[in-house]
């Protein structure tokens, strides 16, 4: 607690120095390589969770079934601490499946983390499609499959995409946790910097993670603008966000 002001300035200077040092960026443990790792340990679980949770949520929403199960998953999914998920991922990877710990533990962790917001929002989005709209579609003789694909899914798509964006940011921001269990990615700089009392490296890592998360957010927002039909844009955030928000 000696002269916090001076310490803060030092920390900022050191961070700047670390971030602008070419040596921090190159090599197998440099920023570039770690960023790629980060992308990879985020993308694999996000894509797999999307492949599982979105269809499940959409189907459950379509059949208006599994409300109780859905709510339970949703509550439980949010309540399990991410550190606990990491331990579970670690045990699963190392002890049960024998896959080692440099990659899979954090991938499992993030996969489980991503399931809840994706499922909950897909489910809610489809279920809350305007009943009159569905009525009209069925009245025109559309099969259930067509109702799902041609009406419910397009109407739900903005919320689902918003959920994907929020989940992606959450996954990217939680991925550093893996470095606690010897994982890679940008979290390494935070853990190593902390362990080595190298404030520049640690704070540099924090900055990089935040920038990475904001870039992901930006990229998916752009994608949303392209994919989501104009009239449906901009009306989805509140609904999706409320069912999600979680820090790790």
């Amino acid at each position: 607690m000696v002269a916090p002001g001076g310490r803060l300035m030092d920390a900022i200077v050191e961070t700047f120095r670390w971030l602008t040092d070419a040596a921090s960026w190159t090599g197998p443990r440099g920023v570039l390589a770690r960023s790629l790792e980060h992308l990879w340990i985020s993308l694999v679980p996000l894509a797999s969770a999307m492949a599982v949770a979105i269809p499940a949520g959409v189907l459950a929403g379509h059949h208006r079934r599994g409300q109780a199960v859905g709510a339970a998953i949703s509550n439980l999914g949010r309540a399990v601490p991410s550190l606990a998920l990491l331990v579970f991922g670690l045990l699963l990877s190392v002890r049960v499946l024998g896959l080692g710990f440099s990659f899979w533990p954090i991938v499992f962790t993030l996969f489980f983390l991503a399931l809840q917001p994706l499922f909950t929002n897909s489910y809610t989005a489809v279920r809350e499609a305007d009943p009159a709209l569905l009525e009209a579609a069925r009245g025109q003789g559309l099969s259930e499959r067509d109702v799902l694909l041609a009406v419910e899914l397009p109407v739900a798509s903005p919320v689902i995409l918003t959920a994907v964006r929020i989940t992606a940011v959450q996954v990217v921001a939680t991925a550093p946790l893996g470095a606690l269990a010897a994982g890679g990615g940008l979290g390494r700089f935070i853990i190593d910097g902390f362990g080595q009392k190298d404030d520049g490296q640690m704070l540099g890592g924090v900055v990089l993670v935040a920038v990475f998360a904001l870039l992901v957010e930006f990229a998916i927002t752009r994608l949303e603008r392209r994919v989501v039909p104009g009239p449906l844009q901009g009306r989805t955030d509140a609904a999706a966000v409320v069912a999600t928000g979680r820090a790790n």
């Binding site: 190392v94 024998g98 269990a181 010897a182």
Partner: peptide, 15 residues
């Protein structure tokens, strides 16, 4: 980088 001589280190060595 692993953990401080903990189970992860032991496991990494064994595997």
């Amino acid at each position: 980088p692993l953990d401080v001589a903990g189970p992860i280190t032991v496991e990494a060595l064994k595997s």
